[in-house]
């Protein structure tokens, strides 16, 4: 049961990451929800994109014992595997169960000024669940952050943001066509949502993944900076350098990775790019390190 005596909403998540260091202030626990309206080519959590559970096999762990032979690619296969090589990504939890899980690190949150971040996937795809979890976290006095790609119903975003101490809002590309090409959706609704959010929420951190050859050209960065600079609620902007950790995960899921051979931007390059945003008076970090 939730705080208000309503039945616990169910949500689909694929991971609860403790000692999470990148998703807001302090030591945090990040809940990764499963299912996303975007399908970014560089996604470092491709397992978060589909809302359905997915079976993956961690090859390094398999000892070829044959325990899974003859079994469907299903939960039975995961159960039968003695090494944990066969994994089912995605599980359904009630908000009450999730609260029990995330509150375990409460003393660490309280010491460090940390808390819980709801990330994904896209939290706004599961609004009832997310709102209930956020309300309960607020009741418990835990700092909460919403990490969103910005694509969702406006009222859900505003309701969730109203219950969040911090909103992490991703901006991928200012050009609608490019955005659609690389993420599968246009950016119109996202930009409009950010403008609306910026009027009512005062703690927004913009997060820009820097993907060489995709969105790191001067024109796009300048456009991003100009757009962000006029949003009143934005406190800072994090430039997140591309890294290829998603590649292995794409392979594990049996999917093609569009960005093979793309090198990670150098620290010097990232510092230069940060200058573009700082020139617009935006407090900017590289990798979230102030």
């Amino acid at each position: 049961m939730s705080a208000f005596g309503q039945p616990s909403e169910l949500g689909r998540i694929f991971n609860v990451q403790r000692f999470s260091l990148q998703d807001g202030p302090g030591l945090r626990t990040t809940v990764f929800l499963k299912g996303c309206p975007l399908a970014c080519a560089w996604c470092h959590n491709p397992e978060s994109q589909s809302a359905e559970p997915e079976l993956v096999k961690v090859e390094g762990r398999c000892i070829a014992c044959g325990s899974c032979h003859g079994l469907d690619e299903s939960a039975a296969c995961v159960d039968a595997c003695p090494t944990g090589a066969q994994q089912l990504l995605g599980r359904e939890v009630s908000s009450a169960e999730l609260m029990e899980e995330v509150l375990r690190d409460r003393p660490f949150f309280e010491q460090s000024g940390g808390g819980v971040t709801l990330s994904g996937g896209e939290p706004l795809l599961q609004p009832a669940f997310v709102l209930q979890v956020l309300a309960e976290l607020r009741r418990q006095g835990i700092h909460q952050a919403l990490d969103t790609c910005g694509l969702g119903h406006r009222e859900d975003l505003l309701a969730a943001a109203a219950l969040s101490d911090l909103v992490l809002f991703d901006l991928k590309h200012m050009d609608d066509g490019q955005h659609r090409a690389w993420t599968g959706a246009g950016n119109g609704a996202i930009l409009a949502n950010l403008e609306a959010l910026g009027q009512v929420h005062g703690q927004i951190w913009i997060r820009v993944p820097v993907i060489p050859g995709v969105n790191d050209d001067a024109a796009n960065l300048e456009a991003t900076a100009r757009f962000v600079a006029r949003i009143p609620g934005v406190r800072r902007l994090d430039l997140l350098p591309y890294h290829s950790t998603g590649a292995a995960k794409f392979r594990r899921l049996g999917r093609a990775y569009a960005l093979e051979q793309v090198p990670a931007p150098t620290p010097a390059r990232m510092a230069d790019l940060a200058g573009v945003f700082e020139a617009h008076g935006i407090t900017t970090t590289v990798g979230g390190h102030p």
């Binding site: 302090g26 030591l27 010491q111 460090s112």
Partner: peptide
Amino acid sequence: EGEEGIDRLHHLVRTYFKL
């Protein structure tokens, strides 16, 4: 690495000792 790394470790220690 960095002050952040020290901060993290410091929070871990303080919390463990609080417990």
